[in-house]
């Protein structure tokens, strides 16, 4: 095998690692408002769950997380610490609710610990942001693994979708098979969203997901909950 091909396979597996749902960061504990949407009857069946996920994918990831992912990726690459801190803080300021804010900080901090576990020399990088977001830490991992940003973002998108479907399967009587089928149908949208996020200018960043923000805030008051967001 050519060494070039070998190194690209190496990168592929690193991407799978970085995006694995088995990564010990705890994202499975969060639904990002989906639990409330299911509980309150905003989403009653798998087609409505699909619409919920697609909207969050297009406007939440596509207009907020991913454009900032790209900026953080290039900032890590250049070791531009001011930009890293700035974009990390901007992303946190966009988090709509207390739950979404703490989810990002908690999962992001778990990612930071994972980084140190991978390689103790990453300590100074991880210390750049006192409250690292998931996007910030995922982008750092992608830079360490020498991934291309478009591929790295696809990994990020994939884990997010997989997690949303896992949430829906736990709350809604939606079988595994149905969830797995939905994940397949989302693939073309995931690719489209990844591509479109490259065209979002700084002053167009933001999701505008009012319903999601309301769901998340109302989830904070929900009486019985499986998920932490």
């Amino acid at each position: 095998m050519y060494s070039e091909e070998k190194s690209s396979l190496h990168r592929l597996l690193s991407l799978l690692h970085l995006s694995s749902s088995a990564l010990p960061v705890g994202s499975f504990a969060y639904s990002q408002g989906l639990e409330y949407a299911l509980d309150s009857g905003w989403c009653n069946n798998s087609s409505e769950v699909h619409d919920w996920i697609v909207m969050n994918l297009r406007f939440g990831l596509g207009h907020l997380d991913l454009p900032i992912y790209l900026r953080l990726f290039s900032a890590w690459k250049k070791k531009d610490l001011d930009s890293i801190k700035r974009w990390n803080a901007i992303l946190l300021s966009f988090r709509e609710t207390q739950e979404l804010y703490w989810e990002d900080v908690n999962v992001g901090s778990a990612y930071a610990r994972w980084h140190i576990g991978q390689d103790a020399e990453r300590k100074p990088d991880v210390a750049v942001c006192a409250l690292p977001t998931v996007v910030c830490m995922h982008a750092l991992g992608a830079v360490y693994s020498e991934l291309e940003p478009d591929w790295a973002m696809l990994g990020f998108i994939w884990s997010w979708c997989e997690n949303q479907i896992a949430c829906a399967s736990k709350v809604l009587p939606m079988g595994q098979t149905e969830g797995q089928r939905m994940l397949q149908t989302l693939i073309p949208i995931m690719i489209e969203v990844g591509e479109q996020s490259c065209d979002v200018d700084d002053d167009n960043i933001g999701s505008g997901l009012m319903g999601m923000a309301l769901a998340s805030a109302l989830h904070e008051q929900q009486y019985s909950r499986l998920f932490r967001s």
Binding site: G33, A37, W42, C43, E48, D51, W52, V54, M55, N56, R58, F59, G60, H63, F94, N204, I205, G206, S207, G208, L209, M210, G211, M212, A215
Partner: peptide, 16 residues
């Protein structure tokens, strides 16, 4: 930030 185009899914969807 809300960037809304009339008749988009952001206007009608439950997450929007």
């Amino acid at each position: 930030r809300l960037i809304l185009t009339a008749n988009s899914s952001l206007q009608s969807g439950v997450a929007g």
